[in-house]
């Protein structure tokens, strides 16, 4: 056996150190080297080599000390926290399902063209353009139609404190911010000059009162809008 294999064997044998053995460490009169925990071959090496024997004592001493650490009782408030976290998880899943269930809308051609134009501009220009962006008229019309349809249908909202209304401005800002991030990544990355933009569809929901909105919904929309809707002060 070489030095490392002896050390490995000694360390493996430390699993035999019990809490009773651990208590021996506190009593210098009864402390023992517990050589019986070691395989015979290792014991023979230790008998001939004081350095190895000392190494075993050190290892044993460490593990005796660690074994004196007692089990820690589980605090009573863990139950409540786990239940709360479980229920929050369910709420989040439910909200995600509701958002998934929203009808998808095809992007109006004007918005599609706008996105393509932005996507093919250098990052700095696209960022500068963002401040002057206005929702295309077709998107505004789409909003108006959806709002009216919703009102006439009087469909009960499946989502707490929200209704299925299109919010053109929020969509535009969120889309633009997403694009700016993509452009930033493009310019910082491979140096590609063009960005392929396929026609896209989207889902939009409008929070009637973000201050009272379900935090799970806010979190989900925040993620989907690139952080634009993270805060309760964000666009509605």
């Amino acid at each position: 056996m070489n030095r490392q294999s002896i050390r490995d064997a000694m360390i493996e044998s430390l699993s035999g150190v019990t809490t009773r053995h651990a208590a021996e460490g506190a009593n210098v009169d009864h402390g023992t080297d517990r050589l019986e925990l070691l395989p015979q071959a290792v014991r023979e090496h230790l008998a001939e080599n004081e350095v190895l024997h000392q190494e075993w004592r050190q290892l044993l001493r460490q593990v005796r000390a660690i074994r004196t650490l007692e089990r820690v009782p589980v605090p009573s408030d863990l139950d409540g926290r786990v239940v709360a976290s479980l229920q929050a998880g369910y709420r989040q899943e439910r909200v995600a399902e509701q958002v998934q269930a929203l009808p998808t809308e095809r992007a109006p051609r004007e918005l599609d063209l706008l996105v393509r134009r932005l996507a093919n501009q250098p990052f700095a220009e696209a960022s500068a353009d963002l401040g002057d962006l206005k929702a295309p008229a077709s998107l505004e019309r789409l909003v108006a139609v959806r709002v009216e349809t919703e009102r006439l249908a009087r469909k009960p909202s499946g989502m707490p404190r929200t209704s299925r209304l299109l919010a053109a401005a929020a969509l535009l800002v969120a889309t633009s911010l997403g694009l700016v991030r993509l452009l930033g990544e493009r310019d910082a990355g491979t140096g590609d000059n063009g960005l392929e933009v396929a026609s896209f569809s989207f889902r939009v929901t409008r929070m009637e009162d973000p201050a009272n909105a379900d935090p799970a919904l806010l979190g989900l929309l925040g993620g989907m809008s690139g952080g634009m809707l993270d805060g309760r002060e964000g666009p509605q």
Binding site: E24, G25, A26, V28, G31, Q58, R61, Q62, R64, A65
Partner: peptide
């Protein structure tokens, strides 16, 4: 690593 971290503690408490 335990040798470095734990030995001074055990020495201080006179533990074998």
């Amino acid at each position: 690593a335990l040798d470095r971290e734990l030995t001074p503690v055990l020495d201080r408490h006179h533990l074998r």
